[in-house]
Design a binder for these strands. Structure first.
Lengths: 342, 342
DNA sequence: CTGTTAGCGCTTTCAA
DNA sequence: TTGAAAGCGCTAACAG
């Protein structure tokens, strides 16, 4: 009987069937599939033919149960729809794809209870490793999982934990942004803050203060307006600042999204950017180069952060050595900043 | 021996161990866990105690292999980092979460070969159902999977396939956008197109043409500039239009991203929006309400599209009836459009 | 209501 | 190099 490919049989052939058709044992098929041992030329061909004929693809679930490995990496993000996380997730995705791991994304929504629950779900699904993007989950909850699984943290220092952590120098980035404004002659530089309990946001405030201090400018609480990394509160921040009659010629917003909000609020009040007020953000979201005017901001290499996280967790899973290279933050000067007018 | 909770034993307890400690059979534990049959009060308590003591969580992999269900839905998207897909993915995520399914996201990157490969991967991972967001994959490839699995299509009509499909009336949306411009007195309305082979993009062109025709305005090829749904080509489109010396007082861009690019190109040339030229987009991305000026656009309920897709696939998986409710597109008038100046 | 008995489809010793 | 056999941890009849 000629082995003509049966195109309708691609339903759910099993390894056992492949073995039977190829006239070999299941172990041989498994060995061929995984390259876990040499298989003779003759049997290799027979197996290949059977696989083609049945249009066979291994059942990953069964494979996972038997081997104890799922070839899956859990990625605990906060909000899959946030422009910042997106770039990073794409980096993770690409890094994992290179090693044939699949990402399993879950969102914690900045809620530690939900994060803990999601982490537990990843564990129940027996992921081989985890990438944790930001979040406020307690160290103990992470620790419980970290004992069994490689975990890479992103954007969070782990005081009590000893886990590889990929961070960006937020303080330095904020310092550069503020210093840029100061060098343009601005002395009254307002700051739109991020969430008070967010580590990155805190560091950005510190960088802002450092730059002021260095220039001999006294830090004034009245020039900082609270926001939470979103556009809406960025707008509010400007309204507040304006209402308080604080005077300023430049604004450093703790992230691009709040800078967008600020920019719109300024537009509504008829205040021009950069002619009347200079504005700088932080993150360099994809959209920032298409704002009007294009936003001067601090580039945070989100894609690279994600890529490095994904790559590192794979190295850990496979027992390979890894090295965390420091990621650079850099100021990207565009058109939302200009010298102070005298 | 008192049953004191052993906090360090939360590693990988098995159902069998729970059963032994509780003094019941594994089936009883399984039944308790799945609620698949009544369990007596006494045993229920014993099982609960054992579970608490061991800090047990079922191994999803084993459960999947035994039951043939993974409680996972594959989501084939094109680009996890695109602002449009994001909103939709969040909708899918939320809908699945309601039914305790986890999404497994994979990206096809608008490449039909890659899509087919990803789809096959989802199948190998034995997802219980699939949501396909757009894409150019061939009907046959989809069909091969659809025979075994519930599939819900999003944003794509399936001519040869009979699958539930969630679409939005792109033609109508484009018609509304163009008509809005015409009602403002604009007669020379340029169109920035999307990718030629993209169904939604084609429909948006048709809607634009329909509105012109209805108003007795003749369609001019010279007023359409090709772009591909991205900001960069949106900019290019404006340069082209300007260079060709075509005259127009309004622009309808096939999506918000290309509208952003157009807006920036206009800014560079010193052409004001909306004073000199009115601009309308399509999608209503989250950012569009924070542009300067806020963009008039056609709201496409991306979140709802995703939610409905997720919800529908779950209904299909569970053999429940489902009904696809038409999703409304609506014009959102903001500040990038104004009456034609005479 | 409960326990016993077979597997789910694959990997992995262990011998040959 | 190859095959046989024993699971991976859970579910799902089938008796009782």
């Amino acid at each position: 009987m000629p082995a003509m490919p049966d195109l309708t049989a691609n339903d759910t052939a099993t390894l056992g069937e492949v073995a039977r058709i190829a006239g070999v044992s299941p172990s041989t098929v498994s060995r061929y599939l995984n390259g876990s041992a040499r298989v003779s030329e003759a049997r290799r061909q027979a197996v290949e033919a059977a696989i083609a004929q049945l249009n066979y693809r291994p059942n990953m679930v069964a494979r996972s149960l038997a081997s104890g490995r799922t070839s899956t990496v859990g990625v605990l993000t906060q909000d899959i729809a946030s422009p910042f996380f997106n770039e990073a997730l794409r980096g993770v995705e690409d890094a994992l794809a290179e090693s044939r791991y699949a990402p399993l994304f879950v969102s914690g929504h900045w809620n530690s209870a939900e994060e803990a629950e999601r982490l537990s779900l990843l564990s129940a699904r027996r992921v081989d490793g985890v990438v944790m993007m930001h979040g406020h989950i307690r160290d103990e909850d992470v620790q419980a999982v970290a004992r069994r699984l490689p975990i890479v943290m992103v954007g969070r220092a782990t005081a009590t934990l000893d886990l590889p952590s990929i961070t960006v120098d937020n303080r330095l980035g904020a310092y550069k942004a503020t210093r840029h404004l100061i060098e343009l002659g601005h002395e009254d530089v307002a700051f739109i803050s991020g969430p008070q309990d967010h580590h990155d946001a805190q560091q950005r405030l510190v960088g802002y203060q450092d730059a002021l201090r260095e220039a001999g400018i006294v830090f004034r609480e009245s020039l900082v307006a609270k926001a939470d990394f979103h556009e809406a509160t960025g707008m509010l921040a400007i309204h507040q600042l304006l209402e308080s009659r604080a005077s300023f010629t430049a604004i450093f917003a703790a992230n691009d999204q709040s800078a967008y909000g600020a920019r719109l609020a300024l537009y509504r009040r008829g205040i021009r950017v950069p002619e009347d007020v200079s504005l700088v953000g932080f993150d360099d979201l994809p959209y920032s180069s298409y704002c009007v005017p294009p936003l001067t901001t601090v580039r945070q290499p989100a894609y690279e952060v994600g890529w490095q996280a994904g790559h590192t967790v794979v190295q850990m899973i496979e027992g390979q050595p890894y090295a965390l290279e420091p990621l650079r933050v850099e100021l990207v000067v565009r058109e939302s900043t200009s010298p102070r007018r005298r």
